[in-house]
Each structure stands twice: as C-alpha cells, then as structure tokens.
Design a protein around this nucleic acid. Sequence first.
DNA 1: TGTACATCAGTGAACGCGCGTTCACTGATGTAC
DNA 2: TGTACATCAGTGAACGCGCGTTCACTGATGTAC
Lengths: 231, 231
Amino acid sequence: MATTRSQRHAATHDEIKKVARQQMAQYGTAGISIRSITRQMGLTAPAIYRYFSSLDDLITELIVDSFNDLADHVESAYTSARGQSYVQQLMAVLMAYREWALTYPVDFQLIYGNPIPGYVAPAEITVPAVVRVFAVIIQLMAEALEDGKLVPSPQYATIPPEIEPTMQMVTQHDGYHVPVLAVYLATVGWPVVHGLIMLELFEHIQPVVGDIETFYRVQIENLLVSIGMIN
Amino acid sequence: MATTRSQRHAATHDEIKKVARQQMAQYGTAGISIRSITRQMGLTAPAIYRYFSSLDDLITELIVDSFNDLADHVESAYTSARGQSYVQQLMAVLMAYREWALTYPVDFQLIYGNPIPGYVAPAEITVPAVVRVFAVIIQLMAEALEDGKLVPSPQYATIPPEIEPTMQMVTQHDGYHVPVLAVYLATVGWPVVHGLIMLELFEHIQPVVGDIETFYRVQIENLLVSIGMIN
DNA sequence: TGTACATCAGTGAACGCGCGTTCACTGATGTAC
DNA sequence: TGTACATCAGTGAACGCGCGTTCACTGATGTAC
C-alpha cells in the first residue's frame, strides 16, 4: 500500500507528539526536550524542524490537542447519557472528566498543572477549548433548572453580589444562552471536581480514603444533593 | 557586633534557601539551579557544598520548611480564634491556609504541585508536617461534634463502607484521638479547599468569578452548612 | 515510458549556552597554649 | 598578649553532560513533460 509524501509527513508529525507525551509522562512536563524525542525516534535533533518551527510550537500543539481531546471525551459521555436523570447525566459527564484526567495525567498537568518554565501559552488558542467542556455542564444545569429538577437550596439560590456582575459578563461573553444561575452552580462545583482530581493525580488522597473512585463518586453525589438537585 | 563563624554559616545557609525560593518563583520549581543561586549571591557554584551536600538535599530542606511554615501559620490562626464559634474558628483556619498558599505560591507548589523531575522526596521526612495541618482541622471537627454544634446531615452522617476501614486505620495510625467521623468530615472538605486554592494559584478561576476572596469564603461557608455545621 | 528537475526528509558538524559535581588550592578566621 | 596551628569559606579550573537552533549538505521521492 503506497503512502503519499504528505501522509508520511503527517504520520511523523503525530509520532513526534506521541513520543513527546511519553517523555513528559516520565520526566514531567518541564522535562520535554527536542533532542531526547528525536533520539528515541532514531532521528537527529534538527530533523524536528521539518515538523515544528520550535519547541514552543510543539508544546502549544500538545496543549490544544489535550483540551480538545478532553472536550471530545466529555461531550461523548454527555451524548451517551442523554435521556437519563440529570443526576445520572452529570455523574456520567463528571466521571468521564475524571477518567480522562487519570488516563492522560500528563495532558491534564499540561492544562491545569504548574506552568512550564519559559513557555507562555498563546491565550487566544486555548480559551475556546476550555469553554467546550464547561458548556456541557452548564447546559445540564440549565435544563435541570428549567425542568424543576434542580431547586437550588437557599445558600445557592442567590449569587453573592460581589460575584454576580462577573458571572453575568462571562455568561454573555462566552455565549452560553442560559440563566446566570446555571453558570454559577457549575462554577460552584468546579473546585470540588478539580480538587478531587488533583489530589488523586499526585497521590495525596489515596492513603487517606483507600477507595478513591468511590470517594469521588460520593463527593459528587453529595455536591449535587447540596446544591438542590433532585434524583 | 561580632558574629561567630557558626552564626555566619547559618546566615549564609538561610540566604541560599531564600534565594532558591526567589528563583523558583521566577522560573518554576523545576527551574532551581545551584549555579544560578550562587551567581545571584556573588559566589561560585562549588561554594554551595559547604552548606548542602547536593541539590536534592537543598530541595528536601525547602520542602520540609514549607510544610512546617504552613503548619505554624495554620496553628497560629487556630490559637488566635479560640473561643469563637466553630464556624468562625474553621473559617479563620482555612482563610489562613489560603493566605499562606497565596503568599508563598512556590512553597505550595513544592508541596502540592507537579513533582520536580528527577527529584524524589524522602517520604518519612515530609509526612509528619502534613499531619500537623490536618490535626488542627480534625480537632475542630471533633470538638464541634461533641458540643452538638456539628450535626452531620444525612448524606455525611455515615462513612461509605468502602472507605470506612481506611479511615479507621488513618485515625489510629496518625494518632488523632478522635471519632472517625471527624476525620471523615475533614477529608470531605479537603478537595474543596484544595481545588479552590489550586484554581486561584494558576489563575484559572479569577476570570469567571472576579472577586475570588469572596468566592472562597462563600464556598467554605456553603461547605460547612452542607455538612451540618451550626453557626 | 523515460528523463530532467524540483521538492523535501533527514544528516552531521558546529554555535554558545547552562548544568551538577570534583579537586587541589588560597587566605582569612578562630583556638589553644 | 602573642604565636603556632587547625579549621573552614570560598575559588578557579576542569570533568562530562545535555540543551535548542543554524547551516550547508546528501540522497531519496515525487512531478512535469
């Protein structure tokens, strides 16, 4: 089976990214290096410039890929769970979020971990992908609110006045066509989910809880009950 | 005022750590380097071996210092807040926790961020300091339970059976003389606090909430209400 | 179908750089008598 | 109080290493006629 030059180019391009990911898994996101990537591929270092114009370029592509891959994963969980109760749908989506983080820990660190020294991400490239993930959760919150299946408990029913204006702005600017309260309730859940995953990823919480998957699930359930979600 | 040789030795020892911290703030925890530390101090690189037997030694000392400093800070907030309501005491302690993380972001990353490539922390040295911070929060939970000021809401009143045995073990092993439920309730709050701080530290959540301090405070209050704390 | 030319993947040497650590040393500071 | 000696902070050169990037190049692959 003959392959064209551009197919082979694309294949090598992708393999470079694959090897880069592998090496980040071993040496940390800051340990990425052109020379060690090409060494492992049996190439010399300058060969990489046929595929990426610099190391920063490679990193940016890895980050954008990660965001999109996470968004794809979350969206597909969302699609599969449609028709179930809102608690079940949110649980499915948030389990998918965790699953992705654990399957691709390096990519999750790339997005949410320490910045890579000397590297500055071009913000306009990464923002849209973050929005995709958030959109799914906000969407579910909004639907549940409308259906009367999410009746915010008193503490969550009103947005603190110091926060409300920014929340309004974000809702409009990011193009969520949804009540602000839905955005607020999603934002409230974010730290819980993020904290659970971060603590699991760096193995801080396993020694304390043992069965971390159960702990995650129970915490999410508790969160949903607390904000006023009805199963 | 004459200084002894050992005083001067201690002073230089401390200055090395101070400069190391500064440089980590600029170049990330992975960017620490003997040569750039000594350069900034007007010394040559080998001079550092009068004070630390290797780079890893220096890092270990920085980590241990960080843990203890955090614990000191939290304990002193605890002491100052004694006599107030449990909600107020917990709030004071958790605000102190956040305050420390924001004041010394590098140290917080050293403890809870990405591991430094090639560096492995000797676990027996770092564990006791983590316990110190936790002990304060667990202590408050236990007192509140005993005083009837913490009446766990149904979802938090029983520990999930998959988690209970580990929780028991930790309670005994780490020497908290306290009901397991107190340890569990503290553990439940951990991801929220950790997530909030991590998201703030890397500036992921500011654009969404605007006034992050208020958001933190409100989230902690909500958490305390959810688990069944009475003000 | 065969030839001439253009494209392009990858090489190898070199650039200037920074790194942690070792070693034999100098010279100042402290201590014992 | 003064002298002889020991201690120790810091130096400068060297070690072997890895890094990103540039450059002129070779040789294979693809394209146009």
